[in-house]
């Protein structure tokens, strides 16, 4: 019988450094295998399934935490604090929103329906929350947290500006006033509704942290 986690370990071994494997992946999988083997020897199937789920979840968590630590180490302590407080959390928020949108585009359903247009808005509070949380972790001020949360709006406006330039100078078909007004209305809706949703998601992380209140 193949041990649980063997395939995951083989994949991880291709992606991770030997040190990461020895310190993080292997101990997590060794725990998983030991617990799983123990449960199976007592013929407890449900417990073994719970152990498998917990073990894999722990592995995902380990890799996520390690990934964040590595990224911050690469960015370095000499990196401008403003980048850590605003730009990195803002980029994470953009990545979540545009990544989600990109995944939706690939899903097979009618893309002209209102539901499709509305679904990306649902992820915006989470994007705002992610950015504000990241900024707060870096000890960003409330303003920095809100600015980082609003990054998808800034990106959307920038994309609109790029679209105008592309339409005017590079696109084959002429870029007319109706095209511009259509894009402008979508952008304005995104600025107002999207901005509100982003701030809504960021709001719980904008209150002073308990530690800040105590100090």
């Amino acid at each position: 019988m193949k041990r649980p986690g063997a395939r995951v370990r083989a994949i991880a071994a291709r992606l991770c450094r030997a040190e990461t494997m020895a310190r993080l992946v292997d101990p997590t999988l060794a725990d998983l295998q030991a617990e799983y083997g123990n449960a199976m020897s007592r013929n407890r199937k449900w417990e073994s399934r719970r152990i498998l789920a917990q073990g894999y979840l722990a592995l995902v968590q380990v890799m996520a935490v390690h990934g964040c630590v590595r990224v911050m180490a690469i960015l370095g302590p000499s990196m401008d604090l403003h980048i850590k407080k605003v730009w990195v959390p803002g980029a994470a928020s953009c990545l979540l929103f545009f990544g989600f949108h990109w995944v939706l585009i690939w899903l097979p359903f009618d893309k002209t329906r209102f539901q499709f247009l509305a679904i990306p808005y649902l992820v915006l509070p989470f994007g705002g929350a992610l950015a504000a949380y990241g900024s707060r972790r870096m000890k960003g001020s409330v303003l920095e947290r809100i600015v980082s949360a609003l990054f998808p709006v800034f990106a959307f406006v920038a994309l609109f500006a790029v679209r105008i330039g592309y339409g005017l100078f590079f696109e084959g078909t002429p870029y007319t006033l109706p095209h511009f007004l259509g894009g402008l209305s979508v952008t304005l809706v995104f600025i107002v509704v999207g901005g509100l949703l982003l701030v809504l998601g960021a709001w719980p992380f904008c209150r002073p942290h308990l530690r800040e209140r105590l100090s």
Binding site: R23, L24, T28, D31, A34, A58, Q61, V62, V65, V69
Partner: peptide
């Protein structure tokens, strides 16, 4: 102690998903 024993002995203060990151840093 093993990593999981540390998690159990900490009574919830250490998490299974982060204990090895902490242990690696301490090493």
């Amino acid at each position: 102690l093993y990593g999981l024993q540390l998690v159990a002995a900490s009574r919830g203060r250490l998490k299974r998903g982060t204990v090895y990151v902490t242990l690696g840093r301490m090493e």
